[in-house]
Every structure is written in C-alpha cells, then in structure tokens.
C-alpha cells in the first residue's frame, strides 16, 4: 500500500516533470535556432515570446476563440523576431560578444517594462482549452491531465516540424547553409540576410508557442512569466550543446523532471540552484555539451 502510494507519487512527478520539460526543451530549441544561424545568445527570447503572447492573448477580450488568439501570438512572435533581427541585431554582427549580450539584455528589460506599462503587471489567467484535471488511475491521480497531454503533443509537434523543415525542405537547406557557410551560400545566390531574419522570426515563433503554453492555466500571463523557464531553457541548451536541437530537447526534459522532484521532495526555492549545479556539473564533464557530435565548439 505504502509502496503503491510512493510509486504513484514518483509517477506523478515524472509526468509533471516531462510536461514542464518539453516546454523547457522548446525554449532551448528556440535559443539553439538563433545561436546556430547568428551566434547570438538571445537573452530577450523569453521576453519577446511573452510580448507576442500578450499581443495574441489579449484578443480574448474581444471574444476571439482561444486557438485564434494562440495563432495571433505565434504570428506576432514571427514578426517581432524578424523585426528585432533587422533593427537591433544586424548592426551587431562581427562585434565583440558583449555588445549583443548587452543589447539583448536591454531589450529584455525594455519589453518587460513596456508590457507592464500597456497591460499592467497583474497576471491574467487564461482558461486552458482542455481540462487540467489529472487523469485517474485506480482512483489515484496520475500527474497527467488532458491539457498536459496537449502541451506535450504540441511541443513535440513543433519540434518535429522544425526538424523536418530544416532537414527536408529547400528553405531548410538554405537556412542551414546560411548558418554553416554564409559566404559560400551568398556565392550560390542564397539571400543570406533574408534568411537570418527568417531564422529569428521562426525562432521567436517557436518561443511564442512555449509562451502560450506556459501562460495558459495556473502560471498566468505576466511580464516576467518567461524568466524562470528562459533560464531553464538556457541551461538545457548549454547542457545539450547549443549546436544540437535534439540534445536541447532531451536536456530540457531531464531538467524539467529534476526540478519537479526538487520541488516535490525539497523546496521550490532550491530548483534554480539545482539548475545551476546541473549546468556546472555537465560543463565540468563535457564542456562542449553532452549531445554534440563534434568536439570542437566556439566556446
């Protein structure tokens, strides 16, 4: 009896951790996409996704359907990402590391403040389109709800779609070429500048999917609501290797599960520190990331 309660608690945490982890993986993927194409670590990524989500989800006030609002959010992310690359990031290519870091950190605080100025800092709660009551198994909750299942499926679908786009389409081929060998790509007539803009647009759209998922349900939508998950996403990307989308996803799930267990068995205040320790340990084991194939990396 005690064993079964214990087992169900572990299962609960595991499923809850995976649910949170796929979203962390999505944030990590979004970071990796930008890193691969432009070698900028986008510190404003979470804030940009949050902002896009506000643009879409405040349309609920105009009695639009949840799905329409979600779609607007993703489209807003796409536009915001592309515009950001054009205006803020383009002048920074080839500059010292610190320049893009500072600009993106400035953009992060600017976006959060503008969001608070327009929509106030009070969280808005968005009803999930599916029930968030856990499925029952033998009268005990499983840690997985229909909405959580939707989160997992949505996150994995977005990741799979991104992977397919990059692997099998003409656009993906050009995006990869622009990232790997921009000069060669230009010599072959590839409009590299446009593709870098598109890369930022796609990445921010992916980030917006994560932000829509996070903002729906208990967490709520507020200007700083992506900060924690952004940091977890960065840790996942760094552990997985900023060159490896699959690694970033896997690392995201691991971090989600570990943090869930820390929350449940210790204290939620320690989760952030555990993340830092995970990062340190993984970097000490393998500085180039745990899932990258080739050892060389521009760290």
């Amino acid at each position: 009896m005690i064993a079964s309660i214990f087992a169900s608690r572990i299962l609960n945490d595991l499923l809850g951790g995976i649910t949170a982890g796929v979203v962390i993986g999505l944030v990590a993927l979004s970071l990796v996409l930008i890193w691969q194409s432009t070698h900028v670590l986008n510190f404003a990524q979470g804030a940009m996704a949050m902002f896009a989500t506000y643009i879409g989800m405040t349309q609920l006030d105009h009695h639009l359907n949840y799905w329409v609002c979600a779609l607007i959010s993703v489209a807003a992310g796409f536009v915001l990402g592309g515009a950001t690359e054009r205006v803020l990031v383009r002048p920074l290519y080839g500059k010292a590391d610190i320049n893009p870091i500072v600009v993106m950190v400035g953009f992060l605080s600017l976006l959060e403040a503008i969001a608070a100025a327009i929509w106030s800092g009070t969280p808005r709660f968005i009803d999930p389109p599916f029930s968030s009551i856990f499925f029952q198994s033998d009268g005990a909750p499983t840690g997985l709800s229909p909405f959580a299942l939707f989160q997992i499926i949505a996150a994995i679908s977005v990741m799979a779609a991104t992977a397919l786009l990059f692997r099998f389409t003409k656009l993906g081929l050009q995006l990869r070429a622009s990232a790997l060998a921009p000069e060669v790509a230009r010599l072959l007539g590839v409009r590299v500048n446009r593709l870098l803009t598109l890369g930022w647009a796609l990445s921010t759209a992916v980030g917006a999917v994560a932000a829509v998922i996070i903002s729906t349900g208990d967490t709520g939508l507020y200007p700083a609501n992506m900060e924690t998950v952004f940091i977890a996403g960065f840790i996942a990307a760094a552990i997985g290797g900023l060159e490896s989308p699959g690694g970033a996803l896997l690392a995201g799930v691991v971090i989600g599960v570990v943090m869930q267990f820390v929350n449940d068995y210790f204290n939620s205040g320690y989760a952030g520190f555990v993340g830092v320790i995970l990062l340190i340990v993984s970097l000490l084991i393998r500085p180039q990331g745990l899932f990258t194939k080739n050892a060389q990396r521009r760290v």
Binding site: L41, D97, I98, I101, N267, S268, G269, G275, V276, L283
Partner: peptide
C-alpha cells in the same frame, strides 16, 4: 566553472546564478 566558458555562455550562467539566489535566501 564559469570562467571556462566564453562570452554568452558565461553571461547565461551568471544570469542563472543571480536568479537562483533570491529564492534560495527566501527559503
């Protein structure tokens, strides 16, 4: 560990550290 990293990685790690401190203190 942090100074084994360059530029953006180091910045990200310090961000993670800085964000982890206040909740740790609270608890």
């Amino acid at each position: 560990p942090a100074t084994r990293l360059s530029g953006p990685y180091l910045a990200g790690m310090t961000l993670a550290f800085g964000a982890a401190v206040p909740p740790l203190i609270q608890n």
